[in-house]
């Protein structure tokens, strides 16, 4: 009983710590006043309306979405192919290849962004959302590779061999056998990539020019003054993504 009480109290405290900033963020997005700090002056939707009518923010939302989808798709493709390649044949240098592909995982985003910035400048590549997408593939491809690689094992190998023996071509084997068999891993890799790209700031900040992603736009919003609008966009994005996460969770559970 005491043990239960201690556990419950500890859990409650950690949850309180974890939810404190979210609570403050959401509560003061409804602040009827200029400052998102106590006292709470009353309930108002004016900051949410201000967000929805802010062209920069809405454009940045769109850019973020496109960058996230494109970079995750490319990352998943690269990661899936490499994972499958390395899962099968006993290739000399497979360990090196594996190490090389996953190396970006342990490198700070700031360093990756700076390296790409210097390279693009030297190669005269103009900065745009394309360069941001490219940078996000650098950080997400290793992630997708790792997730796909860990999902591949003997059962796929056997099923693939069977399919090949029945005369299926390589692309058909991958599309009709391998991919469906590790679908949960593919979905997880894609969603995780989306999340990382969606929330990534420093690479997007260094590699974008006129069109920016949401975190970069939020950064300039922060720099332009204390404003419940920041709370409002933060809460809106949070509610939408939390909803998406729960929906995905439910959908996966129903399949399982």
């Amino acid at each position: 009983m005491i043990r239960f009480a201690v556990s419950a109290t500890y859990m409650a405290l950690i949850y309180a710590f974890i939810f404190l900033p979210v609570y403050v963020l959401v509560l003061f997005s409804f602040q009827d006043g200029r400052f998102p700090i106590p006292p709470f002056k009353g309930f108002s939707l004016r900051w949410h309306q201000a967000v929805l009518s802010d062209g920069h923010l809405m454009a940045a939302l769109g850019h973020s979405f496109v960058v996230a989808v494109l970079s995750s798709a490319v990352s998943l493709l690269l990661g899936f192919l490499a994972a499958r390649g390395l899962a099968h044949a006993r290739l000399r240098g497979a360990g090196v290849a594996r190490g090389l592909i996953t190396a970006p995982l342990s490198v700070s985003y700031l360093v990756i962004g700076l390296g790409l910035l210097a390279s693009f400048n030297l190669a005269n590549v103009p900065l745009s959302l394309m360069t941001v997408t490219l940078g996000h593939v650098v950080i997400n491809a290793p992630l997708c590779f790792a997730i796909c690689a860990s999902a591949m094992g003997a059962p796929q190998l056997a099923a693939e061999r069977a399919a090949r023996d029945l005369g299926a071509g390589e692309i058909r084997v991958m599309a009709l056998v391998t991919a469906p068999m590790i679908l949960p891993a593919l979905v997880a890799a894609f969603l995780l990539s989306m999340t990382f790209s969606w929330d990534e700031f420093i690479i997007a900040f260094l590699l974008s020019r006129f069109d920016v992603t949401l975190p970069v736009e939020l950064w300039s919003l922060l720099r332009s003054g204390l404003n419940p609008k920041t709370n409002a966009i933060g809460s809106l994005v949070f509610l939408v993504s939390a909803f998406a996460v729960l929906a995905a969770e439910l959908a996966l559970r129903r399949r399982a």
Binding site: I18, F19, P21, V22, L25, T195, D199, F201, L214, P215, L218, W219, L222, T230, I233, G234, V237, F238, S241, A242, V245
Partner: peptide, 10 residues
Amino acid sequence: IPFWTSYIVR
């Protein structure tokens, strides 16, 4: 769950 608030906003 708070992972899904933006890092900057957090």
